[in-house]
Design a binder for these strands. Structure first.
Length: 228
DNA sequence: GTGATGATCTTCT
DNA sequence: GAAGATCATCACG
């Protein structure tokens, strides 16, 4: 029988995600988002993530899709943890989240940026970019810096991936730990929140400092946190 | 490098 | 009917 090549690292368990997104988001930094496609293996290291809290918290996170309770769009967020929540935004892009918390409670982590690791040429094709064969910092950022860009590069679309269990061995779409260690992260407010939103300044965005693929304004400041 | 603008369409009110 | 967890492009300094 034909045996598929082993995927890098170890699959993250559901327990990893069955807690507050404010704990999950920083822990996801350095992990691999992996997508096994017909055209080849795609994978990127998570370098930026944001937490969106469920409506059971006080005060309510009014920037979160789940803040008014379940709707047809956000129902995945109220199910089991570790599932992909993929939605369309601004008519032409997708954003990819991982559901957190126990079943019945919402909460998720938005994956905002990756550092490309596997399938670079295919990522470039997905992004309609010319592939030169060398991965400069600039090219890496053009591939997967930003939630819309990384979905395009990783071939993530709502119709195929919304609701997929990222913790299943059978899934072509997973998050894995290849042992990469992150010693220091930066916390900042989230990107793209409406200025009139009370949650505008909540420090719920985590990045790997200095990574070329981190999105958003470089001027955005935050606090450094050292992970023991 | 930074900042403004338009594209484009789904979702919820 | 309005807003939106964005991006590419263009002007400007």
């Amino acid at each position: 029988m034909i045996r598929k090549a082993p995927l890098p690292g170890e699959l993250l368990s559901r327990a990893f995600f069955e807690t507050s997104p404010t704990l999950v988001a920083p822990r996801l930094l350095g992990k691999l988002l992996v997508h096994r496609t017909e055209a080849g293996l795609l994978a990127g290291r998570i370098v930026e993530a944001e937490a969106y809290r469920g409506p059971h918290n006080d005060p309510i996170d009014t920037a979160a899709h789940a803040h008014r309770g379940p709707t047809p769009r956000n129902q995945v967020l109220f199910g089991h943890a570790g599932h992909a929540y993929v939605y369309a935004i601004y008519g032409q892009y997708f954003c990819m989240n991982v559901s957190c918390e126990a079943k019945g409670q919402a909460g998720c982590v938005l994956i905002r940026a990756l550092e490309p690791v596997y399938g670079l040429e295919l990522m470039a094709r997905n992004r309609h970019m010319h592939w030169t064969g060398s991965l400069t910092d600039r090219v890496a950022a053009q591939l997967t810096s930003g939630p819309g860009r990384l979905c395009q590069a990783m071939a993530i679309v709502r119709t195929s991936h919304n609701g997929v269990d990222l913790t299943s061995r059978r899934s072509a779409f997973q998050i894995r730990d290849d042992g990469f260690e992150v010693s220091e992260v930066l916390v900042t407010p989230r990107i793209g929140i409406n200025p009139s939103n009370p949650a505008l300044d909540w420090p719920l965005r985590w990045v790997i400092p200095g990574n070329p693929c981190v999105s958003g304004p470089k001027s955005l400041s935050g606090d450094r946190i050292f992970i023991p």
